[in-house]
């Protein structure tokens, strides 16, 4: 330790000493090593995503077909645009952050205030976008049927366009018996949430409508989901259909493999949590800048350290964007 740390320095983490390891301050170096460990956590998530995707290579959902919505544009097929916009928002807030760091080096308090403020706003917009993205994903799109084996069947018309369950399901009189302990079937509790149509209604509607086909989640040689013929579709639905899925949660996912939804929630959720904590830390630093803490301290290094964290969040998003949405 004596070789690197200036032991003659006053008490405290190598403050004031001239012999600084890597010529970096204690705080900045620890921020860097925290970022390394955090990068490993994220890469663990993304590598696990890759593992699951390789494991189900022939039936993994295509991200383009899952994330097709854009706010205020209903019914418009806009694959990827919204995520691209989110990427730009985050990169831009990274730019304002690095401008704040630069202004800090020059001890320009007012500029730091403006740029930190813009950074916080950018982070907040990103968080809002992510909330919207989650909401859209959870609510779902067309709805699908899950087979007994847990695979997803989606419905198409003759032109190959997706059809929503509500568009063809027939209305059947409801024969729903609530299960109560008094009936002696206390051990079979009822499902907590109910879908807007039942499986029987979907089945009857499908049999009645000659134009409908089923698409499985298995991909053909060209990487498109396999579309079954009308006869195959009927056999498949009657023999294997089990329940209706609308939207996605941790157990069911109308877009395909439930693992896709799990990884979506965990990876973007973990990243969103980092953005949230980044915004909170940025706010704290922002107020410190406003009340002149760093002006009195004579150094804006705290802005630089929190800037490192903020850029790291942007860096992770670049990878999430590629491996979740593009590849």
């Amino acid at each position: 330790m004596e070789a690197t740390v200036d032991t003659t320095a006053p008490k405290g983490a190598w403050s004031g000493g001239s012999n600084r390891p890597f010529k970096a301050s204690y705080g900045k170096m620890m921020m860097w090593f925290f970022i390394v460990s955090d990068a490993l956590t994220f890469s663990g998530f993304l590598a696990a995503y890759g593992f699951s995707r390789y494991k189900f290579m022939d039936s993994w959902p295509i991200a383009d077909e899952v994330f097709t919505h854009f706010p205020f544009l209903h019914g418009v097929d806009a694959p990827m645009y919204y995520v691209a916009l989110m990427t730009f928002i985050l990169i831009f807030s990274s730019v304002t952050m690095v401008l704040a760091v630069d202004a800090g080096h020059k001890m320009q308090q007012n500029k730091v205030i403006i740029y930190m403020f813009l950074t916080v706003i950018g982070g907040a917009i990103f968080l809002g976008s992510q909330a919207w993205e989650w909401n859209t994903f959870i609510k779902g799109d067309y709805g699908a049927v899950e087979t007994k084996g847990g695979r997803i069947l989606q419905f198409l018309d003759k032109d190959g366009k997706r059809v929503g369950l509500n568009d063809f399901a027939v209305d059947l009189p409801e024969a729903r018996v609530s299960q109560e302990g008094s009936n002696g079937i206390w051990y079979e509790s009822e499902a907590v949430t109910r879908t807007s149509v039942s499986f029987e209604e979907v089945k009857e509607g499908f049999l009645a409508n000659e134009n409908l086909l089923i698409r499985t989640q298995y991909l053909d040689e060209n990487g498109h989901p396999t579309v079954l013929s009308r006869e195959e579709s009927i056999t498949k639905l009657i023999n294997e259909g089990n329940l209706v899925v609308e939207g996605a949660n941790l157990r069911h996912n109308e877009y395909g493999s439930p693992l896709f939804a799990d990884f979506f929630f965990f990876i973007t959720g973990f990243h969103g949590f980092h953005v949230l904590s980044g915004v909170v830390i940025n706010c704290i630093i922002f107020f410190n800048v406003v009340i002149g803490t760093y002006e009195r301290r004579g150094s804006y290094e705290m802005v630089e350290k929190v800037g490192l964290y903020w850029h790291f969040v942007d860096l992770v998003w670049v990878f999430v964007f590629t491996f979740f949405y593009l590849v």
Binding site: L40, Y54, K55
Partner: peptide, 24 residues
Amino acid sequence: VVWTGIFLISYLTMILLFEGDYIY
């Protein structure tokens, strides 16, 4: 910072992708 990250991440990725393909 950089080499530590790159080495560990490439190693983990390689192992998991090989394993995923094997299970496939």
